[in-house]
């Protein structure tokens, strides 16, 4: 098998000290391969968000290693880590985090702006992604004027615009109604299926998790079970 995109070894995260010590992650070791769709499932407090933050290099583990493309990143300088995040990851958040004052196009090209890309190239790439998600006609709209589903689609566009190796989705349907959730799920898994994007979904939604190829069930900072096979993917 090829080198995993992401792998962890004995990942430990501890918050606090002494009496307030809380072991959020208790030594996790697993791999995520290119083109996989992985769900990290668990109740709140199970450590699934902490795990995603560590995988996405947003946080540093207390001990253990996270490796991206076979290279351990824990020892890298913050600036280099920032750059890796910018180049390698896309994020879809539950609360969208769109800047209401900016247009959709400005919002979704933010990662490219951070990367230091010129404006015309940014906009070209941005439009490309918006077209892919049928959002091109909303490019000039202010982000506040979008519906919930459109907002989440804008978020996905923003996550895709830098052509990431891994797309992290943190409760991507948490704020959406059932119908819109399904549309967003279709988009996410369509991207996974048609474009081979590696998808890491953090959720407590069993239905969403069921659509992933692999599910890591978490409880009290440990992976208690691992399931394979997408049970709910539309055939």
């Amino acid at each position: 098998m090829s080198t995993p995109v992401l792998e962890t070894e004995n990942l430990v995260k501890v918050y606090g000290k002494g009496a307030t010590r809380f072991d959020a992650l208790k030594g996790l070791t697993f791999e995520i391969h290119e083109g996989e769709s992985v769900a990290i499932v668990g109740k709140s407090g199970s450590g699934k968000s902490t795990l995603m933050h560590l995988l996405a290099l947003l946080d540093e583990p207390t001990s253990g290693v996270v490796a991206l493309g076979g290279e351990p990143v824990t020892a890298l300088k913050p600036k280099k880590v920032s750059q890796l995040r910018n180049e390698s990851f896309g994020f879809v958040f539950q609360q969208f985090f769109l800047n209401p004052n900016q247009t959709v196009l400005e919002n979704i090209t933010l990662p490219l702006k951070i990367a230091g890309m010129g404006k015309s190239e940014r906009n070209r790439r941005g439009m490309e992604v918006l077209e892919q998600l049928d959002m091109a006609d909303k490019a000039k709209n202010k982000a506040t004027n979008l519906s919930g589903g459109q907002k989440q689609r804008a978020c996905i566009a923003r996550a895709l615009v830098n052509r990431p190796a891994v797309l992290f989705a943190d409760e991507p349907t948490g704020n959406l109604d059932t119908v819109t959730s399904e549309i967003v799920e279709d988009i996410l898994f369509g991207l996974h299926r048609d474009h081979g994007i590696t998808l890491v979904v953090v959720t407590h939604d069993e239905d969403l998790a069921a659509k992933c190829q692999r599910r890591l069930m978490m409880q009290d900072g440990e992976i208690v079970a691992e399931e394979h096979g997408a049970t709910g993917v539309h055939a």
Binding site: A56, L58, P78, K79, S82, Q83, L84, R85, N86, E87, F91, F93, Q95, F97, N99, L110, P111, I114, A115
Partner: peptide
């Protein structure tokens, strides 16, 4: 705050 968090999550360095 959230906008700053977002920018940092998307790889904007503290210096920037």
């Amino acid at each position: 705050t959230r906008e700053i968090g977002l920018m940092k999550a998307m790889g904007m360095s503290s210096g920037k």
